[in-house]
Amino acid sequence: MDKQESHNNTTLKLSELKPGDRCKVLKISGKGSIIRRIFDIGVRSGAEILVERVAPLGDPVEFKLEGFHLSLRKEEAENIIVEVISS
């Protein structure tokens, strides 16, 4: 897995980011089928994610990854630990 780069210490949960933020996945924590599902759909460590928009009623959130768009609820996005690239 990618080592966290030392000069950038802003590791956050994906759920904490705002639309327009760009980040890189460090680790997916947690256990069970939810995590496996997130993995299988293409959120692997090292993947770059752009937070695209929040749904009209406040949840879920749409993310853009290389080659596809994905919708996750905030509670699922909490399992994804990311490093902010730009905001």
């Binding site: 596809f68 768009h69 919708s71 996750l72 609820r73 509670e75 699922e76």
Partner: peptide, 9 residues
């Protein structure tokens, strides 16, 4: 259940 869904173009 979690809501993990792809949004197609």
């Amino acid at each position: 259940t979690p809501f993990v869904m792809e949004l197609p173009p």
